[in-house]
Nucleic acid binder design. Structure first.
Lengths: 176, 176
DNA sequence: GCTAGCATGTAAACGGTTACATGATTAG
DNA sequence: CTAATCATGTAACCGTTTACATGCTAGC
């Protein structure tokens, strides 16, 4: 997931590690800033795998910046990751958001639509947070204020997202 | 987080591991089923720490069930975890949901309201997923279909949640 | 002079997943 | 008879966090 974010942001323009860190933090809604101990090793893995080029930029600031850019191999890997997200990446809202953020890099609208369709299928499967005697518990009968809130928010989110997904899938179909 | 879910569900009634697994899966919206390799060691840690009692129930099904119940120490730990969620547990929607699901076990409405207030404060801080030249990018100008969708869904979710939080905080204030 | 931000990195520990292992019961 | 579900457990691995480490620049 971290690697996807790195590849995705670098597909737009070359950046150094620190700037990457800022963008990744914003992408998650400031929910969970990336730690240095995760970011720099991930960058180094990608450099070692030939997916990133680096050029050290002496100058202005503190430590010399390593400006990173995507190689052709890196771009190919990015497209593979976007084409075939694993099931968790469809299912988990944070991970799916990461996929969405970079989905525009997939050149084929049919492939883009396919990813959206998988997400929609997951959201359309009936699901509930709580069960009582095997039956799903409805928001109004959750029994306490807090669970009612959870269900209310989840319902609103789901409806907005499903509406958008249907619209977007239609729009991508037209663009064929 | 896993441990919080275990303690939370067992605060309601004794359960065995497999049933716990089902409930935890549902709690996350079926987003990410707990793996056995995480659940059973977590249970054993809590048993070893004296937070859970176990009673083996021979019978009906396959492997003999271990029915788990919360000890007084376990309940005290649960309350501590609910009273003082770490910042990630306020920030990360999935983790915050877990806290919410069990917040009713906190006996003091003022403490419950305090947790909601922290979440509201986080949601009220202006945040954006993307920046262009330092400025936050608005949904309508995200530049591509997918980022527009992300921003649209995030906005709807945030509004629903903030509205609910304000209502709930008021309601808890009245119940004093 | 000091604090906050810029910029990069390593090592230990943690929480979790994946794969492996076992076996009984129930429904098709 | 066979697949799915119930039920529990271990070991290797993996990505990430936390803590540690360094040092420069800009603003107060």
């Amino acid at each position: 997931m971290l690697e996807l974010s790195i590849l995705g942001f670098l597909a737009e323009e070359p950046l150094h590690g620190y700037e990457l860190k800022e963008r990744i933090k914003a992408l998650s809604g400031h929910v969970r800033p990336v730690s240095d101990g995760a970011l720099y090793p991930a960058i180094n893995r990608l450099v070692a795998a030939g997916e990133l080029d680096q050029r050290t930029e002496e100058g202005a600031s503190a430590a010399p910046r390593r400006v990173l850019s995507l190689t052709e191999r890196g771009r190919a890997d990015l497209l593979d990751r976007l084409r075939g997200p694993k099931q968790v990446e469809i299912t988990d809202p944070v991970r799916f958001n990461t996929v969405l953020a970079f989905l525009r890099h997939l050149p084929d609208p049919a492939e883009q639509a396919e990813v959206l369709r998988r997400r929609l299928a997951f959201l359309e499967a009936p699901a509930s947070f709580f069960y009582r005697a095997g039956e799903p518990v409805r928001a109004e009968e959750a029994g306490d204020l807090f669970r009612e809130g959870m269900l209310r928010v989840a319902r609103a989110t789901g409806e907005t997202e499903r509406t958008w997904l249907r619209e977007a899938i239609t729009a991508l179909g037209r663009s064929r």
